[in-house]
Amino acid sequence: MNDSVSVNDALLLVGRLLLVVLFVGSGIEKLFHFKAGLAEVNAKRLPLPALALSATIALQLIAGACIAAGCYVEWAAIALAGFTLATAVVFYPYWSAPLAERAALKNGFLEHVSIIGGCLLLIGAGPGKLVL
């Protein structure tokens, strides 16, 4: 059995780190600017906005840290993929937007779909050998 680290393992580490930059950065931003995040959640009329925002922050930070560290990667990626899908549907409903807003919302929606693709690739590939 070969225990050496491969180029693929290094690529998986870099890919994991790049994938979570968005989630961890967003979680930190929401944590330090809770009131602004709450206004965003309230604008979408989500139930229990403070709880929803707190859960979002916790998920982004904890799942992001797990993926970065290489522990519980598949579960963290599943959670973030589901969260990202829900976020895309709630915050980027381009299909029902006025024509003037549709292109920007569609772009945001498709960016979220691409992030889901990254999560699915990570679920399939696993974390690689470079983990904590």
Rank of each mutant, 00 (worst) to 15 (best):
M1E: 08
N2S: 03
N2Y: 05
N2Q: 04
V5M: 08
V5E: 02
S6V: 04
N8D: 12
N8L: 15
D9F: 01
A10L: 06
L11T: 13
L13N: 01
V14N: 06
R16L: 04
R16H: 12
L17N: 03
L17F: 14
L19M: 09
V20A: 01
V21H: 04
L22D: 10
V24L: 05
G25E: 07
G25L: 08
I28Y: 09
H33F: 04
H33W: 14
H33A: 12
K35E: 15
K35V: 10
A36S: 15
A36E: 14
A36P: 10
A36M: 11
A36I: 12
G37K: 02
A39R: 15
A39M: 15
E40K: 14
E40Y: 13
A43V: 14
K44E: 12
R45K: 13
P47T: 11
P47W: 06
L48Q: 10
P49A: 04
P49T: 04
L51I: 09
L51Q: 11
L51W: 13
L53N: 06
L53G: 00
I57Y: 05
A58Q: 07
Q60H: 10
A63P: 00
G64Y: 01
C66H: 10
C66Q: 05
I67L: 08
A68G: 08
A69E: 07
G70H: 05
C71K: 12
E74C: 10
E74H: 14
W75S: 12
A76S: 12
A76T: 09
A77E: 07
I78D: 01
A79D: 02
A81D: 01
G82H: 08
G82C: 13
F83A: 05
A86T: 13
T87K: 10
V90H: 04
V90A: 09
P93L: 02
P93R: 00
Y94M: 02
W95Q: 14
A100H: 07
A100E: 03
E101R: 08
A103Q: 12
L105Y: 00
K106S: 04
G108P: 05
L110C: 09
H112C: 13
H112Y: 02
H112V: 15
L120W: 06
L120Q: 02
L121C: 15
L122G: 03
I123P: 01
G126C: 03
G126M: 08
G126D: 14
G126S: 07
K129R: 10
L130F: 03
